[in-house]
Design a protein around this nucleic acid. Structure first.
Lengths: 158, 158
DNA sequence: GTTTGCGTTCGAGCGCGCTCGAAGCCATAG
DNA sequence: CTATGGCTTCGAGCGCGCTCGAACGCAAAC
């Protein structure tokens, strides 16, 4: 499996800037730490979003969630896996609109795999561009901090 | 000067994912390629934002812009330099609110340098965290693409 | 002299992604 | 028996950052 390779690459590229949270790695690899089924509060807690947001995703058609005898939501393993995917895509900036389209493709069956792949590739490229933008801004900010720190703002007025 | 060092670092961390645009480097180092003074259309074009947005920034108190005899905005070198800063901070996710506070500090004089430095450091850390988030999401997306590409979705339903 | 084009001000509107809150249901705790 | 607390639905509201458009001014082109 290429998981280790990819994970290693991800971790390597993180560099300094703080410890890599176990949370983050867990989300990346999505292991079976999920207790079979969860309440909305537990899922919200796990995913670090609000219960309101989870209901919103459901209303938006991104996920179907079963109910127990009381009418309460029950998130099984599959649901949690999808939520991990959804929150990851949202976190990395995929618009709701696109995510809705993607999920519609998933629902439409296996013959939509090529289009899904296209979407993932496009998203990957978008994220890469965004990282490069941020890296550039970061470098500029670090430079400014160095300039400010060195002396009392030599030339730049801001 | 540490510019070359920082720039090199930035460029190195970009890695693959496409060529580094000359635009981006120019923005990072902000050289004097600016023709003394510009119209709003020229500034908007240079910064890749709309003229509407530039007026909005002015209304928001982020920058004061001179007018010519006709009442048209004239962006001099200092104004453009500030706009470069503003757009960079916005692009890297600093909220308008914070940017307004920062600019208020600049306007308040040199004794606010320590607080400005604090803000820059905080922003730097925020950007670093964001890059790490995106890097993780990117790795997950790349993994999914590899999984989809290898065979027809072995285990993951989405 | 009119048209075209670029600029001005200012208030209103919009798209996004939540976020909130009212009204109600059910179960367990005191 | 009454809280208390966690859940339900659904519509409305909100914060952010633009984005737009109306009504106007001026100047160079035709």
């Amino acid at each position: 499996m290429a998981t280790d390779e990819l994970l290693a690459r991800a971790l390597a590229s993180l560099g300094d800037g703080g410890p890599v949270s176990a949370e983050a790695i867990r989300r990346l690899t999505d292991p079976a730490d999920v207790p079979e089924s969860m309440t909305i509060a537990e899922a919200a807690d796990l995913l670090d979003v609000s219960a309101h947001t989870l209901r919103y995703y459901e209303r938006a058609g991104l996920i179907a969630v079963a109910r127990d005898a009381l009418g309460h939501r029950v998130y099984d393993t599959a649901a949690v896996r999808r939520l991990v995917f959804l929150t990851r895509m949202r976190l990395s900036g995929m618009p709701m609109r696109d995510l809705q389209h993607y999920i519609a493709l998933v629902d439409a069956g296996a013959h939509t795999v090529p289009e899904r792949l296209d979407m993932l590739i496009e998203h990957r490229d978008t994220v890469r561009r965004r990282i490069r933008e941020l890296t550039l801004s970061l470098a500029a900010t670090e430079f400014k901090i160095a300039a400010y720190g060195g002396e009392a703002a030599p030339e730049s007025p801001e």
